[in-house]
């Protein structure tokens, strides 16, 4: 196969980071909505679990779905809102860097394939 499991996992990580960005953006948009509970996407552990399977790793990574979940552990303010704007911004910055790292690695791996194929 042309793309190995690592490449697939990188692509899934890029998708997961995009989904997480959506969740974090929703948190910031609802920073002043009473009763709003923050949401998050834990794509790391989903991918880690798929990579750790004994069976067909490639298929496991391919079938991994990321869920956007309510974060019940976050500290809630008096108005029932659990969004901390600073913490969300920090998570967003980290998420964007992670996504950029994954894209860079995926890009280099594609470049290697290209030169092997002679299509520079």
């Amino acid at each position: 196969m042309l793309f190995d499991t690592t490449q697939l996992a990188l692509e899934r990580a890029i998708g997961g980071a995009a989904q997480r960005q959506t969740a974090l953006a929703a948190n910031l948009a609802n920073a002043n909505t009473p009763g709003y509970q923050r949401v998050d996407v834990d794509f790391h552990s989903a991918l880690q679990g798929a990579m750790a399977t004994d069976g067909d790793q490639h298929a496991a990574v391919e079938q991994t779905a990321f869920a956007t979940r309510r974060d019940a552990t976050a500290i809630t303010r008096a108005d029932g809102n659990s969004v901390d704007a600073e913490a969300e911004s920090a998570k967003m910055a980290a998420n964007a860097l992670e996504q950029q790292a994954a894209v860079s690695v995926a890009h280099v791996r594609i470049q290697i394939l290209r030169s092997a194929m002679g299509v520079m």
């Binding site: 960005q21 910031l28 948009a29 704007a85 911004s89 967003m92 964007a96 950029q100």
Partner: peptide, 12 residues
């Protein structure tokens, strides 16, 4: 904060 979130998404 929303503008910053938008810029982060755009960058990604």
């Amino acid at each position: 904060a929303n503008v910053t979130a938008m810029q982060a998404a755009k960058q990604m």
